[in-house]
Design a protein around this nucleic acid. Structure first.
Lengths: 250, 250
DNA sequence: GAAGGTGATTCGACTCTGCCGGAACTGAAT
DNA sequence: ATTCAGTTCCGGCAGAGTCGAATCACCTTC
């Protein structure tokens, strides 16, 4: 983890991040927000334009569809993504709720694909969205199949930050839950990331028992009672299982 | 169009492009492919890793899901995308074929969204995919509503490159077709981009008659005869129209 | 298990280039 | 006309990127 850097690269991507997060803006507005000299920001934006990753429309600088392209291409190369293909849609249809495929990246859970079932509530869930592992069902599903040292290291680096009032903030509680995930074969989260939301997730393991991702179903608490939970857990576990089998053929 | 650049930024994105296109690779492999010194490539990859846009998995460098995230965020900000929402799915279901939403960016047609109908053939179509304007139905639909000088300028810059044997390579023929697009309200392409494929596309205009995008349906020639074409044209025109109306409310 | 090979990583001095203050410019608004 | 906010241009200097060479890491082969 030397972390050798390069000022220009760093700054270029800082600009990209800013454009992505708060929407485009003018040169001086961006300079203000990032606390950089205007002329420098201008230089960078110009450089980014020549790469094709940024444009200037309507007096505003914007990221281009190049990011979509790169993102989709790399997603297409991910084995889990290919292996899960139709399963995710089936899950969404069967449960009626939001079905997502997530992977772990840089100690976070990242959504790779989303399928909205017929009754899905409108979540702020899109491919690429990231969230802390400990605060979500899919995150816990994945943590449960990582070596304990890895889990410790993650807690060490990022802490157990509370996202809602119900987020797990105690390591012991977390480890207990991970144990029960391993026993039951699925993880559950009740308003630990979004108040009023229940999520149920199953881990996807490969043949050497490495964790590769998780399939997750989310819906409003009111609609998901005890029996419904078992049903969803079964659906999610089955889908994860099929994916696991597919993985070997990819 | 001064095109002021910045070597570091340029090189960083050249690397990203390379990773996206040909999949990740090792340091020296990438150095070879891009004709750069190994140590330099190593420096850049390290810098890219600290930005979070690249990782090293399995001895291979890979782009991360950050690209997906940035791409999806910016797509979400595009008015056309929001305006078209459900329409695209309806089109896919009604026609049974591949339905796509495209916009123009940097003189090219870019896919923003894809919906596969029940009978859709497996195309290599994904969000972010780019193609020349003159060789596709949606491209022609958009060209038809650009000022002639703009069209001339595009031809000037990129020429009318043949993608298949049926691609339009003659400017006069193109302008004739654009005229008929304006008359009929939709554009058609018969194997001009992909042999054996027929695409039918309608333009999306905003209230000041600016071209904002195009809705397109693609299917195999064998399945799309004369009458089927008219049906599809109607579906596509209606969807574009609804989108146009939605645009005013966004 | 020694030798050889391939590729990744580190190091550091030279030099090129990114940096940014200031000036010029553009185009609204008054 | 004048003002002002924002953008673009310019150019000399310091600091940052560059890349050859050395080292390290890890296979394969004899």
């Amino acid at each position: 983890m030397g972390g050798k850097s390069n000022r220009s690269v760093e700054r270029a991507f800082t600009l990209v991040d800013e454009l992505a997060e708060n929407g485009g803006g003018g040169v001086s507005e961006l300079a203000e927000r990032l606390d950089m000299p205007v002329s420098t920001v201008h230089d960078y934006l110009q450089a980014l334009i020549t790469t094709g990753y940024v444009t200037k429309d309507d007096k505003e600088y914007q990221t281009t569809t190049r990011f979509l392209e790169v993102g989709h291409r790399q997603r297409h190369r991910l084995e889990v993504f290919k292996a899960v293909r139709d399963e995710l849609e089936d899950v969404a249809v069967e449960t009626g709720e939001h079905a997502t495929l997530l992977i772990e990246e840089a100690d976070q859970a990242v959504i790779l694909a989303v399928q909205e079932g017929p009754d899905a509530v409108n979540l702020f869930a899109y491919p690429g969205a990231r969230m802390p592992l400990h605060a979500t069902a899919p995150g816990k599903a994945m943590l449960a199949y990582m070596p304990n040292e890895r889990v410790d290291a993650i807690i060490d680096r990022h802490g157990l930050v509370a996202v809602t009032s119900r987020t797990i903030t105690d390591a012991d509680v977390l480890f207990e839950q991970l144990e029960s995930v391993r026993q039951q074969g699925y993880a559950i989260d009740e308003g630990e990331r979004i108040a009023g939301m229940v999520c149920i997730a199953a881990p996807i393991l490969d043949k050497s028992d490495q964790i590769r991702g998780s399939i997750c179903v989310c819906g409003p608490q009111s609609r998901i009672d005890e029996t419904r939970r078992d049903e969803i857990a079964d659906v999610v576990k089955r889908a994860a299982n099929v994916t696991q089998v597919n993985l070997d053929y990819v």
